[in-house]
């Protein structure tokens, strides 16, 4: 049992991070506003979780200007994809092992 729990990635423990990763997995690029609307949390909250994921190399951040407005968009990296897939598999195994 224990080995399953070990494979669960600590980085995805928070629901917000799980949400961010889920959204990025199925969308090529997502901007800040969309993340905020989907997750319905505050700007600062998103920013801190995103930068956490960025430090781990799971998320890449692109800053650019759309017209005169700054626009920040996020995408999942290959490392992030792999890590998230592993995490999902671990979750699945955990649940199946308890059945």
């Amino acid at each position: 049992m224990k080995n399953f729990i070990d494979t669960l990635n600590k980085a995805f423990e928070s629901r917000i991070r799980l949400g961010i990763m889920s959204i990025l997995m199925v969308n090529e690029q997502v901007d800040f506003t969309m993340l905020k609307e989907l997750l319905q949390i505050t700007d600062g909250n998103i920013a801190s979780h995103i930068s956490g994921l960025e430090k781990l190399g799971y998320v890449s951040v692109t800053k650019q200007f759309v017209g005169k407005k700054p626009n920040t968009s996020y995408a999942v990296t290959t490392t992030g994809k792999d890590a998230f897939t592993m995490h999902l598999q671990a979750l699945e195994q955990l649940i199946q092992s308890k059945k």
Binding site: L18, S22, I23
Partner: peptide, 14 residues
């Protein structure tokens, strides 16, 4: 619950 959350977010964002 975590899996449910993941599914909802993937659905809702696409």
């Amino acid at each position: 619950q975590a899996i449910q959350d993941i599914k909802t977010m993937m659905e809702r964002s696409t």
